[in-house]
Design a protein around this nucleic acid. Sequence first.
DNA 1: TTAACTGTACTATTCAAGATATTACAGTTT
DNA 2: AAACTGTAATATCTTGAATAGTACAGTTAA
Lengths: 127, 127
Amino acid sequence: MFQLDYSDARPLYEQIKERIKTLIIRGVLVSNQQLPSVREMASNLTLNPNTIQKAYRDLEAEGYIYSVRGKGNFAAVLSPALKGEEQMQLKKQLMETLTAMQNLGVPLEKALQWVKAAYETEGSDPE
Amino acid sequence: MFQLDYSDARPLYEQIKERIKTLIIRGVLVSNQQLPSVREMASNLTLNPNTIQKAYRDLEAEGYIYSVRGKGNFAAVLSPALKGEEQMQLKKQLMETLTAMQNLGVPLEKALQWVKAAYETEGSDPE
DNA sequence: TTAACTGTACTATTCAAGATATTACAGTTT
DNA sequence: AAACTGTAATATCTTGAATAGTACAGTTAA
């Protein structure tokens, strides 16, 4: 499904959360689609089931997935509120990046050019 | 000089590094300007001098400051190479943010609009 | 009904990174 | 000499992350 980056300083469960979030937002994981079970995912990534459980628990609390006892975990139908939150967060991140670019002397024209380039690349760059 | 965010999960020395980097890039700290001494900064932030030393050591290794034994630490003259690196990193970050926005359904027009807004705000948002 | 899956909840333990505390020494300035 | 600077080293404490193991509850299909 994905790989972990052990050179990344962030905790493993954070990486897992991020990856799954991305897969859901990009529609790779469709609403109500079942995720690998806690034990299976743990086996695939060669780590402890508790770590996966932690990631799943968080993701459910945040509204990205839902879990059914005995059945499994499933991609949630993202609420408009959640999508709005995501958008605001991205906008904030965008503004910060742009401010930094401006301070570094990157001209507006170049910034606009990069934006268009990113959108033209159409596909969902998988990282 | 600045404050620390204890709700931030990242280590303190990382936050310190980031803040100082930003101050230098934005020109708040001019080239060759002296930074607070290790002990003074530690006293101001109410933490251990070792933590500041760690931040300063890293910053020197990365080319943002230089230190003179017995005198102090000073903002470096940023090399074009370092500025280039910074730019590339920001560009990468920008592209990732935009890809995410695109996947969330934010139209190109809106993205461009935000970019212009960020540049119009002129000043260096200190956050 | 049983077996083999699912999720979930504990507790105990190990491990590493971050941060502190303390001491010491070298160079600069007045 | 005193009071600053940087720098280095060691020992200790604390915390979060991750592991290991066990147990129990719900689901599904043979």
